[in-house]
Design a protein around this nucleic acid. Sequence first.
DNA 1: CGGGACATTGCTGTCAGACAACCAGACCGG
DNA 2: CCGGTCTGGTTGTCTGACAGCAATGTCCCG
Lengths: 231, 231
Amino acid sequence: MTIRPVQQRRASEVVRAQLIELIETGHYAVNDRLPSEAELAQSFSVSRSVIREALYSLNALGLTRSHAGKGTFVASAHLSSRLLMGRYLPAQLGEIRRALEVPSARLAAERRTAADLKKLRLLVQRFGATPEASKRIEIDADLHLGIAAATRNPLFELLVGDLRQVLQDQALTLSKIEGRAQQADAEHQRIIEAIEAGDGAAAAAAMEAHLDSVAALSEDGASARKSRRAR
Amino acid sequence: MTIRPVQQRRASEVVRAQLIELIETGHYAVNDRLPSEAELAQSFSVSRSVIREALYSLNALGLTRSHAGKGTFVASAHLSSRLLMGRYLPAQLGEIRRALEVPSARLAAERRTAADLKKLRLLVQRFGATPEASKRIEIDADLHLGIAAATRNPLFELLVGDLRQVLQDQALTLSKIEGRAQQADAEHQRIIEAIEAGDGAAAAAAMEAHLDSVAALSEDGASARKSRRAR
DNA sequence: CGGGACATTGCTGTCAGACAACCAGACCGG
DNA sequence: CCGGTCTGGTTGTCTGACAGCAATGTCCCG
């Protein structure tokens, strides 16, 4: 990643685009501190105003958070969706998830390549072999994202990924329920088997069952789960 | 994703929030020119820097567009989604649309209020009575959005609205096909009747048929039509 | 009288400098 | 060892200035 001097377009736009790219490519990782505004200004050969405007865009887009006296930190590696900007009930998110992921499983079954299948099988295996809840959540996310990717429709991947991010805390509480891991493992296997068989209807049904059990469990714990976490 | 209390202390954030609200509530309509930065600065009793930073956020979010020498103009009345940032094939958009709108119709049938129903019926009637293609597209969008709203799940409304915006040009070409208006009118009526009857399955089926005919028309060129006998 | 070049005006884009608020860590005194 | 203070660094905000762009009015010349 070379930082090239500003030329034709508005300088602030160029800076913004480059900063976004630096963050999305992982040059600055999540929770990293960006260089100070003064340093960035020098790097880009522009004034601090331009840097501030670019950073303010990133702030608005949810990519970074700035704190007076501390610095600017990367908050997310990719542009956050509007889903993150509002607060929605778990039940509402669950409905959307069902609407997206059931057809996603169906299409994945119809279109998956051998490479998709291999990746999915590996993830299922790792899911069953991983004891730590936090790790399992990651694998679970990768699995559902992998299914969405197997649809060959990038929009499914995009939207399922967004949902995943919003549902992160729900997934965490869920994963701690006794015996949930084994149950989820079995459900995952059924989904993948249907995808492997190329049976769209079966894949859809298996995914639906999976989400049913997720919904049932998250309703039970919903009442006790409301804790206020301020920062 | 931790839930942050909305505790806005920085002046620029306050200004940004207020400007967003002014735009979303329609106080400034699309294509209106906002007051100049100097005027806004005076109105909000802050310096021009703060205004610029707020405006730059709006720019990044796609709400406004600034032109040197002309001013800042409202580009969109609501926050634009990431769907708009990429280019996707009509077939891909159609799949997502089916995934979202079929469950949307089902839920709408199960939850619609009397007010929803009244609004939807009015829209169907107006759709049938409107000859101009461009007007019909608007009504069509309102109709599908109205169905999404009747689900009582704001996320359906959000996502269906996003899709609508992306599909605008497709809708335009579609609406010019001979006889399409009558066909669409009939399909709409069938959907609304099922919603009125509270029959979720029938509403889903009617929506699916509607989207089938849309898909068939929009890809009748080279590709062979796929028969969808799922569900 | 008409039309085109020019001056004016208002706006955004950018720069430079300054100061306050704030934070973290170093330093120092008890 | 502990706690308060100092200090340097960072963001937040303000002020003033100037360049470049766009639209409009104005004036001179044909």
